[in-house]
Write a protein that binds this DNA or RNA. Structure first.
Lengths: 223, 223
DNA sequence: GGTTAATAACTGACCAGTCAGTAATTTAGG
DNA sequence: CCTAAATTACTGACTGGTCAGTTATTAACC
């Protein structure tokens, strides 16, 4: 009755106007699809469909596929960096707690969530989208590395850690975490051999603390 | 003189027939392009052109783009694993030398060469090509991890290393190496901040040896 | 009923894969 | 040897499908 269309079949939702909510919904849909299939292999029709709109609507909010990509990155990851910087202030006097916090919190808030797909996405696409890569590098990587370097430097200055090359320690610190996230979103999702995240993190933190020459005692003696 | 063709203009090389050499040339061209632009973004016309043949010829030797992908992986990486297994035999009694060898040799023979792009390629494409991923996982990853685990286990048994979780140590060991290679082929190729490979490896080996509780003395006291 | 969010049909470029034809090489016949 | 027939590596124009981006139209909300 209400619907005169006799074809029915097409289950078209009743076309709402929600200018405010759209960009969020679209970037959220794009994030999960980009992470799942990669940037190139994701069709904009699909992104739009998952957000419950048509492709034309997507183009009301984003100029191009690449612009959508940038928005996904900007929105997903910048808040996380800010959380890290807050933590650096909060535990200014305890480098071990700080590193443990970065490690386990990073995993809890980023690595293990959908955001954990972003490193893979950026690694995969960096060369094809140098502008986005530069933005990410400046906004996320540089700032993140500085965070870690600062924490380790404090530990060295306080005599808690051995003298190590603080220049590159941020990269070394992050490598296993990123590896874990990349694994989850590549081989972990298709071949067996899934890594046990908790044990992996414990193994790494244990090795790292011994490597830095700090008293072990991580959680309660990590198994 | 030799070339009678008066048309000239078209700089077509004189069409050689070299059935034996083609597959090699094609996989080599494909490897560098896949690494540079990713699998999806690489056009087969381009692969063929770089190998000095036409696209039609490519299809005489490979059934599909995916078949070419598999060939690239199989040819590029399996020999390297075999070299590692040989090394495990050669230095059976010295775990520290073994790990140092894996680390620096891996970088010299794989990470720093064009083959170093393969981990990035596989990470990026694993989900879209589960069959190739499964092959790589079985043929390369499993075997490689076993190599490292064996070396560390020996060190623990001999009392040279602390008791650590040998189950996951292979992944932890490889993570920074892979990170370095991935970096080279993503951000390193487009944004500044290039990692100094030698220093990075030294930093990692130093941290690792201390973490495993082995006597330091890596090269001559890595700076 | 006027404004504009939203749609869906459309366009044009692009590219994996095909195939009818071309040219290099080998073989057979003289 | 020389030449012509047979073979086969190789080519490049073509096809069918896909998809980013556009536009003419529709309908929701004030």
């Amino acid at each position: 009755m209400a619907e005169k269309s006799p074809v029915a079949a097409q289950r078209s939702a009743p076309r709402r106007r929600r200018k405010e909510a759209r960009p969020q919904e679209l970037t959220a849909a794009a994030l999960s699809l980009f992470v799942e299939k990669g940037f190139a292999a994701t069709r904009l029709d699909e992104v739009a469909a998952r957000a419950g709109v048509s492709k034309g609507t997507l183009y009301l909010y984003f100029d191009s596929k690449e612009a959508l990509f940038k928005a996904v990155i900007a929105e997903g990851v910048v808040p996380a960096i800010e959380a890290g910087e807050a933590m650096l202030e909060r535990h200014a006097d305890d480098p071990v707690t700080l590193l443990r916090g970065f490690l386990y919190e990073w995993w809890a808030l980023i690595g293990s969530t959908e955001l954990g797909g972003i490193p893979k996405l950026m690694m995969s696409e960096a060369r094809n989208f140098p502008e986005v890569a530069a933005y990410y590098h400046e906004t996320v990587i540089r700032r993140g590395l500085r965070l870690i370097r600062t924490a380790v430097q404090r530990g060295v200055d306080m005599g808690v850690f051995r003298r190590v090359n603080t220049e590159l320690i941020g990269n070394v610190f992050m490598a296993p975490l990123l590896h874990l996230a990349l694994w989850r979103h590549s081989f972990g999702a298709c071949c067996g051999g899934d890594l046990d995240a908790q044990r992996f993190l414990d193994t790494w933190f244990d090795l790292l603390m011994h490597g830095l020459g700090a008293a072990p005692a991580p959680r309660e003696e990590a198994r």
